[in-house]
Design a protein around this nucleic acid. Structure first.
Length: 549
RNA sequence: GGCCUGUUGGUGAAGCGGUUUAACACACAUGCCUUUCACGCAUGCAUUCACGAGUUCAAAUCUCGUACAGGCUACCA
């Protein structure tokens, strides 16, 4: 029996041979230096921030070199795949403006290097596995789970390296006849690589991010085709990235230790080894120790967490970019007029250790981002957020649209805008008192002056003698100063600081009484603007209300 | 257990053999400015780069050992 016939029995019904597929996927016609890379998730549900991070880096690298970025779905583990998982991934990434040049889309594949879903490429993997069998670089293995468990126990006992290799690779030396007999008996099998590596020999490897290192050769006869006929990750990676002409494999650093397997697979298959860039993971502090951000344990791993808070997607991207390349922030500072997209990411500037996910920093970036938006943009975004997470508040925003925009415009759209909205979930908390519907039973935060009589005196004197709704800001302030003087308060801080004993208090006390009476809060944006928006009717009403409380 | 990788302040980091008294940003603290808060401005916050030894005229930067942390060690990706 020839090896071809033998391979046919092991992997029957393969329509084409590997040469056929090699021809089907020709070299890409791209300019020098163009990066062809991919995002290759398993469809296991929502996308988390770590995945978003690597998808972003990969997409940006392709874009800035006029390369190709494609989406490949790695669904070779059928137990883990989730219904509609693919659409969720595409949806999520779209929100962050990450788009694919080719690959899986909701309406089918796009591009000439498909299919882009691994479960649809079974015939292709089998063609290449057959090639390996014919060349005596792969063989069937009939070991059961029981067998490998026993071997593992022995290996542990004798302190031997754990795994299926060398003398432990018992099916490696089965003769063709023995194999055929087992198949006739109906025994199940997988296909394993016949490794030619020597664990005690090292080879030099250069990762684009991690730099140079010496790695031991792989000597494990790793599975390449599972008993369900689907390939393992390693094998699919080699076949797909070769056929799809991926130039750079950009992925999470948990794959780094599989490099010996992957380079070996490429070489044994006769493929050119691609360049690798292993991204270090985002970490969290878990009671003093750091660990990788976990989809299951950490609420901040889910994209929905930020969505719920109302942190703009753009701010998240800005944050991820500063984590990716720490010189990004400085670049932004020096190129204020430029689009952040013009910044070029550099593998060499990516950190090699795990980065602690810094929520404070994200908030700061978000705050700065929102402060630069126009009032109307803030209104739209706040409304969108409220529509989902605070229906009642969204109704108010819609009912008083112009009024709300004016509130958002206080101390905004100027050189040094107010930075008080960190995320849209916080908007109501900052401006609820501007809506009568929400100003029902406020708790007044009186400061310094708490004596009811004094408060009453200040407010009444102000309303009766100094308040003029038509005042501009200068006159308005002048009137407050006059009020202060009349009641024995210092009208400017300098005088007060020189002789504090000459006064009952100072102008800040007077303003505070008015501020708290009108809003109940001691911290608000500019009082003059607030009063202008409230209007004289409501000012009078609110003063009355405050005095009754 | 084995094999890799990493370790610069509260955090992210820059620096990678000599003008570095270790950039910059976040956080924190104080002061100034301001009718409050915020903004802005100023100042402070690592005498030292996990620890130990070595190489060198010179080390955060090179070498080795130790400790700690992370990853991999599946017919999961």
């Amino acid at each position: 029996m020839t090896r071809e016939e033998y391979a046919d029995i092991l992997l029957p019904n393969v329509k084409h041979d590997s040469a056929y597929y090699e021809k089907l996927y020709p070299e890409r016609d791209l300019k020098e230096g163009a990066i062809v890379t991919r995002y290759a998730p398993s469809p296991t549900g929502f996308i988390h921030i770590g995945a978003l991070y690597s998808a972003f880096i990969a997409s940006k690298m392709a874009k800035q070199t006029d390369g190709v970025f494609f989406l490949r779905i790695e669904d070779t583990d059928q137990k883990r795949t989730v219904d509609d998982g693919v659409n969720k991934i595409i949806d999520d990434l779209e929100k962050f403006d990450i788009k694919f040049d080719e690959g899986v889309t909701p309406s089918g594949d796009k591009g000439h290097y498909g299919p882009y879903t691994q479960s649809e490429r079974k015939d292709i993997y089998h063609a290449f596995a057959k090639k390996l069998i014919i060349e005596d670089k792969a063989y069937p293995c009939f070991c059961t789970e029981e067998d490998s468990k026993k071997d593992k126990e022995k290996q542990e006992k004798y302190k031997d390296r754990i795994g299926y290799y060398g003398r432990w690779a018992r099916c490696r030396h089965l003769t063709m006849e023995e194999v055929l007999e087992k198949i006739n008996n109906g025994e199940k099998y997988i296909i394993r690589l016949k490794s030619n590596g020597n664990f005690n020999r090292k080879f030099k490897f250069k990762d684009l991010i991690k730099g140079k290192s010496d790695l031991p050769e792989n000597d494990m006869d790793i599975p390449i085709i599972k008993s369900d006929g689907l390939p393992t990750y390693h094998f699919a990676h080699a076949v797909d990235d070769h056929l799809m002409h991926t130039t750079h494999v950009i992925r999470g650093d948990e794959w780094f230790s599989s490099i010996p397997i992957h380079t070996q697979l490429f070489v044994m298959l006769g493929f050119k080894v691609p360049k690798y860039a292993h991204i270090s993971p985002l970490m969290v502090d878990d009671n003093g120790t750091r660990r990788k951000l976990s989809k299951r344990k950490d609420k901040e791993a889910a994209i929905s967490f930020y969505h719920e808070k109302g942190i703009p997607n753009e701010a998240i991207m800005l944050y991820l970019e500063t984590v990716a390349n720490s010189n990004f922030e400085m670049w932004m500072e020096q190129n204020k007029d430029k689009d952040p997209n013009e910044f070029e990411l550099d593998f060499k500037k990516m950190s090699t250790g795990g980065t602690l996910f810094d929520y404070d920093k994200l908030i700061n970036i978000s705050k700065n981002y929102i402060s630069k938006l126009k009032a109307e943009e803030v209104y739209d975004l706040a409304l969108n957020h409220a529509k989902i997470y605070d229906k009642d508040f969204s109704l108010l925003l819609e009912k008083y649209k112009d009024y709300s925009i004016q509130i958002f415009n206080i101390e905004r759209e100027q050189k040094k805008p107010r930075k008080d909205i960190a995320y849209f979930g916080d908007v109501k908390n900052q401006m609820w008192y501007m809506y009568d519907e929400l100003f029902n039973t406020p708790t007044y935060e009186w400061q310094n002056i708490t004596d009811k009589k004094e408060i009453e005196l200040i407010l009444n004197t102000y309303l009766n003698e100094y308040y003029n709704m038509d005042d501009d800001k200068d006159n308005w302030f002048k009137h407050i100063q006059e009020l202060a003087e009349k009641l024995g308060y210092a009208s400017n801080m300098k005088d007060y600081k020189e002789n504090p004993n000459n006064y009952k208090g100072n102008i800040t006390d007077i303003s505070m009484v008015i501020r708290v009476a009108l809003t109940s809060k001691s911290m608000t944006p500019d009082l003059f603007e607030i009063m202008r928006l409230l209007g004289s009717e409501r000012i009078k009403e609110r003063v009355k209300k405050a005095l009754q409380s």
